[in-house]
Amino acid sequence: MKDSDILERISRGDEKVLDHLYKKYYRMMTKVVLSNSGTEEEAKDIYQETLLAFWQKASSGNLVLTSKISTYLYSICLNQWRKELDRKSRLSSEEVDGEETQGHDAEERLRIVKECIEELGDVCKGVLTYYYFEGLGMQDIAKKMNFANTDTAKTKKYKCKKKLDSLIKSKYTAEDFF
C-alpha cells in the first residue's frame, strides 16, 4: 500500500489502516527504544503513542508529510523516547512531593470524565470521539455514523456534549471538585 493510499484511507477513518501500519512498522519502531535501554513494554507504549498521534493528525487533515510515513514515525518515536528518558532522569533527581496532590486531583477528575463517557451510548461516544480526537468535520462524522446529513451530526454532537457536561458536573459536585 502506498503512503498516499494510507493517508487517504486514514482521512476516511478506516481503522484497518491503523492495524496495518502498527504491524508493519512494529519491529522497526520498537527497536528505537529497545536499543536505547528501554524495555519491551516501554517500546510498545512509545510506538503506540506515536502512531496514535500520527493517526490523529492525519485524520484531522492537519498533517503535511514531507517524508515517508516510516521516516516520520521513526523520528517521532526517537523524540518521544528522548523526552521520556529526560522525564525519568528529572523524576529521579527532583523532589516532587508538592506536585503530588495536584497531580492526584487531576488524575481523579480525568477518571471521572472517562467514567461519564463510558455511561454514554455508542452513538454519543462515536460522535464525541470522532469530533474531539480525530478532529473529523460534521460531514465525515455523518458519513461514519450513517446519519442522514450534517445537521443530524451537529445536533447529535450538541446533545451528547451537553449530556456529558451535566453528567460530569454532577459527579464533580458530588466529589467536591467544584
Binding site: L110, V113, C116
Partner: peptide, 15 residues
C-alpha cells in the same frame, strides 16, 4: 478537562 478526557478515552479505545 472534558476535551482531554474524551481524547484519552479514544486513545484507550485505540490502544
Amino acid at each position: 478537562e472534558i476535551i482531554q478526557g474524551i481524547k484519552e478515552y479514544r486513545k484507550t479505545q485505540l490502544k
